[in-house]
């Protein structure tokens, strides 16, 4: 066991997979000699050579198109999009191409591609670096979307993502890269995609969340318990597409109340999907409507007002109080 930050756990996972499977290729802008803009691929080119870990020209559509072609030739590409705000450049190659490859070829071709990309607010980035765009891919049949919140989960989920024979978008929250260390086993282990994790047990309200909002929700739940003597159960989705409704429904059936906490703007995102699925699977157990804690439907804020825009412990507590009063 070793104490690792999330970024170290990610590098470690890439290292293990590059060693295990010679078809694994890591490429993107500055991921080679430079080791990535966040050091996620530090040392990997030196260890595995320029044919396995390499830089590309600066063009996101080209990068994912390259991954598509390499997948058709039997490789297992792990491309990087430097910041997920740049995904629009590659939208066709993700949503129209790799997500549909298995389907449109009747299973003849498939795309075992893992797209790694940093995102997430709270670190004062310039425009279009921090945006939470995961919701766009809930609507994209054929891709899975994974968002880890801890070093332990990041490693296990990334190993699963790379080994998955279909496309996975693996989103790494920048604020979580180095915010804390955790015990991460040196050996291989996987965490199944599509499986949520109950990170705090409780009987009064269910909080469904993911990414950096997991930590915020846990702290809010602890403070709330201390203040009100009520226990919130916190579920870290870990995979936001497909959503693990079984874990959510079991919790809601126990608590009878739920809120969803997300960093993305309100409309048509993960929260909306979670609530729709709770309605389908557990509505008769609800004591109150399911509430959403989210920023408003504006463009991602300017750096100087970021902290006010993003959901906080206080806004989660306010929602917990509200849902208990309904």
């Amino acid at each position: 066991m070793a104490q690792m930050t999330m970024i170290q756990a990610i590098t470690h996972a890439l290292d293990l997979e590059l060693a295990r499977d010679e078809k694994v290729l890591v490429f993107g802008e500055d991921v080679g000699n430079n080791g990535g803009v966040f050091r996620a691929t530090e040392g990997l080119q030196k260890k595995y050579g320029e044919e396995r870990v390499f830089d590309t020209p600066l063009a996101e559509s080209g990068i994912i198109g390259l991954a598509n072609g390499l997948a058709i030739q039997g490789f297992r590409p792990v491309p990087e999009i430097q910041f997920f705000g740049f995904v629009f450049e590659a939208f066709d190659q993700i949503a129209s191409q790799i997500a549909r490859l298995r389907y449109r070829s009747g299973g003849r071709y498939y795309a075992p591609i893992t797209i790694r990309s940093p995102f997430g607010g709270g670190v004062r980035t310039p425009e279009l670096h921090s945006d939470s765009l995961e919701g766009l891919f809930l609507q994209t049949p054929g891709v899975k979307v994974v968002i880890p919140s801890t070093p332990y989960d990041a490693k296990g989920l990334l190993l699963s993502a790379i080994r998955d024979n279909d496309p996975v978008i693996f989103l790494e929250h920048m604020r979580l890269y180095r915010s804390f260390r955790q015990e991460v086993p040196e050996e291989e282990y996987t965490i199944p995609l599509g499986q949520a994790n109950v990170v705090r047990e409780g009987k009064d309200v269910t909080i469904v969340t993911y990414g950096a909002m997991v930590g915020v929700s846990q702290k809010a739940a602890d403070a709330w318990a201390k203040d009100k003597g009520l226990e919130a159960e916190v579920i870290d989705l870990r995979t936001i597409s497909p959503i693990d409704i079984d874990t959510i429904a079991a919790s809601v059936k126990k608590t009878g109340r739920a809120i969803v906490v997300q960093e993305a703007q309100r409309s048509a995102g993960v929260g909306a999907e979670v609530i729709a699925q709770i309605n389908e699977h557990a509505i008769y157990h609800l004591e109150a409507p399911v509430l959403r804690v989210t920023p408003p439907d504006t463009v991602y804020p300017f750096g100087m007002i970021e902290d006010e825009w993003l959901p906080t412990q206080q806004s989660v507590i306010a929602a917990l109080n509200k849902v208990m009063s309904l």
């Binding site: 080209g62 198109g65 598509n68 072609g69 390499l70 058709i72 449109r104």
Partner: peptide, 24 residues
């Protein structure tokens, strides 16, 4: 591979297929 409807998408994919040949 089956015909491509999105004009241009096949061009970037071909770069990848060709790089695959080279790497192998």
């Amino acid at each position: 591979i089956m015909p491509q409807i999105i004009i241009g998408a096949q061009i970037v994919q071909t770069a990848g297929i060709a790089l695959g040949f080279k790497l192998k």
